[in-house]
């Protein structure tokens, strides 16, 4: 049995070590870990975003944005207002209305695309369910506003960001997405080409068969021809 207090002295040695090492620890990673934002000195380089701006790290997600290709936001908007994300959104923070032209014909883009950031919980479900790669997660976090009700309701034009912006904030993820889209597009085109070729072939074959039939069966009163007419 030892004197009361030895365990306490042991603990005090630990705290004293931390106190002293906080001044002398060279890499300042173990004994003084406070950092203000990820881009402050001392943040590991691999998590830093390409451009500081107000992005936390290259991996963080915050709130959704809409992507567009090219320079013109509405010209290159990827969203076709299919409303899958609106249906799937767990906290129901997305509101979409389809856009129609003067004739009342549905043109594939949203007239209204609102996200209420005060409701959104950054879960990324909308990104996963979107079949058009139109919605991705932003990492902008400085969103405070003086207006409690309208200020956090983001509209279509505020949400629209270019694909280049996406590449800047999430380089790795954006590259992977572009690769996959290109691959899908290529596959689709190949499929289309194959389908076209097959169609063409079928048409040719049909034509050839018809010619052959014509040759073998000279009677003009074919019932199929009559039916077609």
């Amino acid at each position: 049995m030892r004197l009361l207090g030895f365990g306490i002295l042991k603990g005090m040695a630990v705290t004293l070590e931390n106190f002293v090492r906080s001044y002398f620890d060279r890499d300042r990673r173990h004994h003084l870990f406070t950092k203000e934002y990820a881009w402050e000195p001392g943040a590991p380089a691999e998590v830093l975003p390409a451009r500081a701006d107000t992005t936390v790290t290259a991996h963080s997600r915050n709130f959704p944005i809409l992507l567009h290709d090219g320079a013109d936001p509405m010209g290159g908007i990827r969203c076709v207002a299919c409303q899958i994300c609106e249906r799937e959104c767990p906290p129901q923070c997305i509101y979409i209305e389809k856009d129609y032209d003067e004739q009342g014909k549905y043109i594939k883009r949203p007239a209204i695309f609102d996200i209420d950031l005060s409701v959104c919980m950054s879960c990324q479900i909308c990104v996963e369910v979107c079949p058009f790669d139109a919605i991705v997660m932003d990492s902008q976090f400085e969103l405070s506003t003086a207006n409690r009700f309208g200020g956090l309701l983001q509209h279509r034009d505020q949400l629209l960001k270019s694909n280049e912006y996406y590449h800047r904030i999430h380089p790795e993820e954006a590259r992977a997405r572009d690769d996959r889209m290109a691959q899908e597009k290529a596959e689709k085109e190949a499929k289309q080409a194959a389908a076209d070729a097959a169609k063409k072939k079928a048409a040719e074959a049909k034509a050839a068969a018809e010619i052959a039939a014509e040759k073998s069966k000279p009677e003009p009163s074919a019932p199929t021809a009559g039916g077609a007419a």
């Binding site: 931390n18 870990f33 590991p44 790290t57 991996h59 963080s60 950054s122 990324q124 479900i125």
Partner: peptide, 25 residues
């Protein structure tokens, strides 16, 4: 705070993997 110092490192890992530190989903 000693505990949080270590937790911070693991949360960094979570963020790099899932995009969020606590609400990983």
């Amino acid at each position: 705070l000693y505990a949080f110092r270590e937790r911070e490192r693991i949360l960094d890992l979570f963020e790099q993997a899932s995009g969020a530190r606590m609400m990983c989903n």
